[in-house]
Simulated assay, not measured.
Amino acid sequence: MAFARRLISNDDLRARTFRGRHFTAGDWRILLELFVATEEGRRSPVTALTNAPTIAKSTALNRIAEMIDAGILLREADPGDGRRFFISLAPEIHPWLNEALAEMARSDEPPAPE
């Protein structure tokens, strides 16, 4: 039961962090993939983001397009391959994700002794 409560708390935190904007589990997966890629200094082509087992390829493409339109993600053409595009987090989104993940990690820590 404690684990279920933490999951609910993390969902609530995610909603608060993104100013009440609802993200599906697939959206969250895309954001996390991009966060990790940014931290590792990698670029993410669209195809890499549509291969997650938790979201259908067509749905992932639609959600990526919606998040680009909302200013959450950025799309950049690959200068070496005109058929490929890279997706990245908008600059202001990375710090939001970083803080949300840090707060989620803190919520998973055992309480400090009193």
Rank of each mutant, 00 (worst) to 15 (best):
A15N: 05
E114C: 12
I72H: 02
S107E: 06
T17F: 04
T47A: 13
A65T: 12
G71D: 04
T47C: 15
E76T: 15
P110C: 09
F18V: 02
F86N: 01
S44D: 14
D27T: 08
D27W: 13
D12M: 10
R16H: 07
P95T: 08
I87Y: 04
S107C: 04
D81K: 08
R5A: 13
P111T: 11
D12V: 11
R6D: 05
P53D: 10
F23E: 01
P91M: 05
A105K: 09
H22Q: 13
P45L: 03
A2K: 09
H94V: 14
R106Y: 04
D108P: 00
D78S: 09
L34F: 03
L101N: 04
I72L: 13
L13E: 00
T38C: 15
R16T: 03
D27R: 07
A70Q: 11
G82H: 05
A105V: 06
W96P: 00
M1N: 11
A102D: 00
R43G: 07
M67Q: 06
R16G: 01
P53M: 03
E109Y: 14
A15H: 04
T17P: 01
A48M: 15
D12S: 15
A48P: 08
R84A: 06
I72F: 06
T17M: 06
A90F: 02
P79F: 01
E109N: 08
D81L: 12
H22Y: 07
L74W: 07
E40K: 08
I55A: 12
G20M: 11
G80Q: 14
E76F: 15
I30F: 10
S88D: 09
T47E: 10
T59Y: 15
D78I: 14
I30Y: 09
F18L: 05
I72D: 02
R5D: 11
A4P: 00
R16M: 04
V46Q: 03
G20I: 07
A102V: 00
V46F: 03
G20T: 15
D78C: 09
E76V: 13
L49W: 09
E66Y: 04
G80L: 10
E103P: 01
I68W: 00
A2T: 10
N98Y: 11
E40L: 13
R75D: 02
R75V: 03
E92Y: 07
E39W: 02
A25C: 06
A52M: 15
D27Q: 12
A48L: 15
F18H: 02
A52K: 07
F85D: 08
T38N: 14
F3P: 03
P113W: 13
P110A: 05
G71Y: 02
A56M: 11
N10V: 14
E76S: 14
N10L: 12
G26R: 02
F85W: 10
D11L: 09
I68D: 01
A112L: 12
T50I: 01
A112Y: 08
D27E: 11
L97Q: 01
S44H: 07
E40M: 11
R84L: 09
H94N: 10
M104K: 12
